Amino acid sequence: MDETGKELVLALYDYQEKSPREVTMKKGDILTLLNSTNKDWWKVEVNDRQGFVPAAYVKKL
């Protein structure tokens, strides 16, 4: 969790967005987890953008 109590995830792999609903991340990025109710796609925030990334590409910290 960060200082505001939000849950964080670590990008395990690079991911290039394939639609406007997704976000690009690089391996090693720390992202804010917004929603993990879907087992396949998690909603995150990175670089002031919100979108989805494959759940298998990130790990909760």
Rank of each mutant, 00 (worst) to 15 (best):
I30K: 05
Q50V: 15
E22V: 05
I30T: 06
E22C: 07
R49G: 04
L10G: 02
R49I: 07
A11W: 02
E3P: 14
V44R: 00
K27T: 07
P54A: 02
K39F: 08
K18D: 05
A55Y: 03
N47P: 10
L10K: 07
D2K: 11
D29L: 05
K6D: 08
D2S: 14
L31Y: 09
Q16H: 13
Y15S: 00
K60Y: 09
K18N: 10
G51L: 04
E45Y: 07
E45Q: 14
K27I: 05
A55R: 12
Y13H: 10
T4L: 13
V53R: 00
T4V: 13
A56K: 15
A56W: 09
W42Y: 07
S36C: 11
K27S: 07
G28I: 01
G28P: 00
T24H: 04
T32C: 10
G28Q: 02
N47I: 10
E3D: 13
W42N: 01
Y15H: 04
L8N: 05
L10A: 06
E17F: 06
Q16Y: 14
E7V: 15
M1F: 13
T24L: 02
E7T: 14
S36D: 15
Q50D: 06
Q50P: 05
M25N: 00
D29P: 00
Y57K: 06
W42H: 02
Q16D: 13
D48A: 11
M1P: 13
K43F: 15
V46C: 11
V9A: 11
P54W: 03
G51W: 04
N38Y: 08
D14A: 07
P20T: 09
Q16V: 13
Q50K: 11
A56V: 09
K60F: 08
R21D: 11
L31P: 02
T24P: 05
L61R: 03
L8W: 14
K60N: 06
G5Y: 12
W42E: 01
L61D: 03
I30W: 05
N38W: 07
K6I: 12
P54V: 02
Y13F: 12
V9Y: 10
K39V: 11
P20H: 10
W42L: 04
V9W: 08
D40Y: 15
I30Q: 04
T24A: 06
L34R: 04
V44H: 00
K59G: 08
K6V: 13
P54K: 03
D2R: 09
K27L: 05
I30V: 10
L33Q: 00
K60E: 05
L8E: 07
M25R: 00
F52T: 03
V44M: 02
D29N: 07
G51P: 00
T4D: 13
K27W: 03
Y13W: 11
K39H: 11
D2Y: 09
V53N: 01
T37W: 09
V53I: 08
L31V: 06
S36K: 07
G51H: 02
T24G: 08
P54Y: 03
G5V: 15
R49N: 05
I30D: 01
E7C: 15
W41V: 02
Y15K: 01
A56Q: 11
L34E: 02
S36P: 05
D2G: 14
V53Y: 00
N35K: 07
L61S: 04
V9R: 02
P20R: 08
L31F: 07
Q16K: 13
K18F: 05
T32Q: 11
L61T: 06
Q16W: 14
V53G: 00
V46K: 15
G5A: 13
K39D: 10
S36L: 05
K6W: 11
R21M: 13
D48Y: 09
A55K: 06
S19D: 10
P54N: 02
F52W: 15
D40V: 15
L12E: 04
K27Y: 04
S19R: 08
I30A: 03
D14H: 06
P54R: 04
L31K: 01
L33T: 01
L33I: 05
E17K: 13
K26T: 08
R49W: 05
K6P: 13
N35D: 15
F52R: 03
E17T: 08
N38L: 08
Q50W: 08
W41P: 00
W41N: 01
Q50T: 12
R21E: 13
V46P: 00
E17C: 12
F52M: 08
W42P: 00
K18W: 04
V23S: 02
K39R: 11
N47H: 13
K27N: 05
V58K: 00
Y15A: 01
E45H: 06
V53S: 01
V23E: 00
M25L: 08
T4C: 15
T24K: 04
Y13A: 10
L8P: 04
P20I: 09
A56Y: 09
V44K: 00
F52Y: 15
W42S: 02
Y13K: 12
W41Y: 07
E45V: 09
P20E: 11
L34Q: 03
V58P: 01
L34S: 02
W41G: 00
Q50G: 06
K27D: 02
M25E: 00
S19C: 10
T4Y: 13
G5I: 12
E7M: 13
E45N: 06
K26N: 08
Y15W: 10
V58E: 01
D29G: 04
G51D: 01
K60D: 04
P20G: 08
V44C: 05
L12T: 04
M25S: 00
D40K: 13
E45A: 11
L61W: 08
D48Q: 13
V58I: 08
V58H: 01
T32A: 10
Y57T: 06
L8C: 11
S19T: 12
K27G: 05
V58M: 06
D14I: 02
E7N: 10
V53H: 00
N38E: 10
V23C: 09
D29T: 08
D29A: 08
P20F: 08
D48R: 09
P54C: 04
A56T: 11
Y13D: 06
V44T: 01
P54I: 03
V44Q: 00
D14C: 06
G28C: 10
R21G: 14
L12H: 03
F52L: 08
S36M: 09
D40H: 15
L12I: 10
A11E: 00
A56D: 08
N35Y: 07
L10S: 04
Y13I: 09
T37R: 10
E22S: 06
Y57V: 05
A11T: 03
E3A: 14
A55T: 05
D48S: 11
L12Y: 04
E17I: 06
L8Y: 15
E7A: 11
K43R: 10
A11G: 03
